[in-house]
Design a protein around this nucleic acid. Structure first.
Length: 572
RNA sequence: GCGCCCGUAGCUCAGUUGGAUAGAGCAUCUGCCUUCUAAGCAGAGGGUCCCGCGUUCGAGUCGCGGCGGGCGCGCCA
């Protein structure tokens, strides 16, 4: 990648001037304003400041030692000490030629691949998946795909909520009120009905609450009947999850729910106690963090006073299992922001328990708010089911498709509507900064114009259309030494070069919105090119080169959308 | 009370080690389909980046203090 080569040369030059400088912080980034050039570095100013040097003088000294003639016009020193690099067109065409031969154009595989566990989605058994599950699922899937493209070994794990106190109420409901016909029709809806029924009843009648507690105790003690019912509830739920995941194109390498770790919990606590990490307090076993100021006031319980375990215990057992099973370099948790304190506690406790721990990342996202700006209530009944959201998305897309393409056969229209509708939902979810709360709105979630997936898909289909119209199957076109004659070609080409930079940033900061914005800009550059530069009607070298640009743009768009988990139709 | 996050155009939001003249989409307005798909393109208007002080050559970004909102804080997950 050109920016990387420039960066390396810059580091070499800097070492000649300041041998002890930390070059890792000296980055070459795309210019904020193309008027300044293609790439810039601002780090010399910071470096000069730290050493009380004259920044412009330092810049001049470094430039004197810097040799980037192969790729750049003469380097400019601007303002307080910016270095601006402008690519030579010949270097751009050379980079495009290299990319056309590459399996994944403009993306460099990681020099040292790492093993990364990604924990995401984690829906609860016996409950419908609702809009609240979409962010974790889509975000986690995107991060997994991104890390894989960069050459890392990724293990995705769906940590199902398949154990816990809710099963007491569910068991009561199953035994007393089960409607088997309704269960056959829609198992999740029936289980949800049972839960709500018993939940309401236990609020009114303490005897029901006590009965539910007893059922839970029997389940935990291994009662055969309760275990059988519990297993059936899991199996029925898994069918629903599988349907949703198939629709979303999300795959898991592992589905190890909370219950998988039950047999390990006692030993975890025993070890924590033996090592003096946990101690008894008010009848419970508790881990205190007296030496950590931010957690001093927030101890965490690993065994309740009634002897039961909780999610901190389960999460610690899960970490230990992952460590011994896969020896990961990193474990990523994708959950909402309300669990920040919990994960700080788990990570801190785990750090005391185990000597060598991998990088632990809690990738959190904001809450979903209702249209009124109030938090979305999960228990109040007006939760929007994920399946309904996806249905609505496909229906809205179908209306547009049938209007725009009335001549396509219905099955073709539905397939396009499926890809466009699901793409719109996913993109809308990945576009905002993940840490912002978002206000749920049908219109916003399902928008099909502007900065949306359909815009990107549309650009990709226009490219496909060119190849169809030109009847170009095995393209023998290529980029000769001819110049990129139009300004739009050069802009498009230069933007393509930065794809890998963005993919790496997504993986490093766990922020797919960087990729969304990059692809939106790419599609914008392509559209400008498309409006101004005829491809099929151009002749000779222009035509060949523009076809090559179309091909590369199409590949990057499809690859980028693929990282977001979004498909691209042939036409739309 | 303590902690985390947020406050940027009418609305929804971006804003990459602090960096150059703060950007999109939607909405509004003006043009563009006889040329590879108008789900598009070109252009216009629209800003006290919540307020104040500070650090800095330079602050939407960092620090401190306010104001407003969301979330969390030992036996749910």
């Amino acid at each position: 990648m050109l920016y990387h080569l420039i960066e390396q040369q810059l580091h070499a030059a800097l070492r000649q001037i300041l041998p002890d400088a930390a070059t890792a912080a000296v980055l070459v980034r795309p210019c904020a304003d193309p008027n300044f050039g293609d790439y810039q570095t601002n780090a010399l100013m910071a470096l000069a400041k730290a050493r009380k040097m004259n920044p412009r003088q330092l810049a001049a000294d470094v430039v004197a030692k810097l040799d980037v003639r192969e790729w750049c016009e003469p380097v400019e020193i601007a303002g307080a000490g910016f270095l601006n690099f402008r690519l030579r067109p010949a270097a751009v065409t050379a980079a495009l030629r290299t990319a056309r031969a590459a399996g994944h154009p403009f993306v460099a595989r990681a020099a040292s691949p790492r093993t990364v566990v990604v924990d995401f989605s984690s829906p609860n058994v016996a409950k419908p998946m609702h809009v609240g599950h979409i962010r974790s699922t889509i975000l986690g899937d995107c991060l997994a795909r991104t890390l894989r493209l960069l050459g890392h070994r990724v293990i995705t794990d769906n940590h199902l909520g398949d154990w816990g106190t809710q099963f007491g109420k569910l068991l009561i409901g199953w035994k007393r009120h089960l409607d088997t016909a309704a269960l056959r029709r829609d198992a999740i809806a029936e289980m949800e009905r049972l839960y709500k029924l018993v939940n309401a009843a236990s609020e009114a009648d303490p005897a029901v609450l006590e009965a539910a507690r007893q059922e839970l105790v029997r389940l935990q003690a291994g009662d055969a009947e309760n275990l059988a019912i519990w297993r059936e509830m899991i199996a029925l739920s898994q069918t629903q999850f599988d349907t949703i995941y198939a629709r979303l194109g999300v795959k898991f390498d592992q589905t190890l729910g909370e219950s998988f770790y039950n047999p390990r919990l006692r030993a975890v606590v025993a070890e924590l106690v033996a090592k003096g990490i946990a101690r008894e307090s008010d009848g419970a076993q508790v881990v205190f963090f007296d030496d950590l100021p931010e957690l001093k006031a927030h101890p965490t319980i690993v065994q309740k006073s009634d002897g039961g375990f909780n999610y901190t215990t389960t999460d610690l057992a899960t970490l230990a299992y992952r460590l011994e099973t896969w020896s990961p370099d990193e474990i990523i948790y994708v959950t909402d922001g309300r669990q920040q304190l919990h994960f700080r506690q788990v990570f801190a406790a785990f750090g005391r328990w185990q000597s060598a721990i991998p990088k632990l990342a809690h990738v959190w996202f904001g809450s979903i708010l209702g249209e009124d700006g109030r938090p979305f209530k999960t228990r109040s009944g007006d939760t929007i089911k994920l399946a309904d959201l996806l249905d609505e998305a496909e229906e809205r897309a179908l209306r547009v498709v049938s209007e725009k393409n009335p001549d396509l056969p219905p099955a073709g229209q539905r397939e396009i509507a499926r890809i466009v509708g699901l793409g719109a939902v996913k993109y809308q979810d990945l576009l905002p900064n993940r840490q912002s709360d978002y206000v749920f709105s049908w219109d916003k979630m399902l928008a099909l114009s502007g900065n949306t997936a359909p815009y990107l898909q549309y650009a990709a289909t226009r490219i496909q259309s060119i190849f169809r119209k030109g009847d170009i199957q095995n393209p023998e076109f290529g980029i000769q030494d001819s110049e990129l004659s139009a300004a739009e070609e050069l802009k498009l080409a230069k933007h393509l070069l930065n794809f890998g930079l963005v993919v790496e940033a997504v993986a490093e900061e766990y922020r797919p919105n960087y990729l969304c914005n990059y692809l939106y800009e790419l599609a914008g550059h392509f559209t400008a090119f498309y409006e101004h530069c005829p491809v099929l009607k151009a002749g000779g070298a222009d035509r060949a080169r523009r076809l090559a640009l179309c091909d590369l743009t199409g590949r990057v768009l499809r690859q980028g959308l693929g990282l977001l988990g979004i498909e691209t139709p042939e036409r739309m």
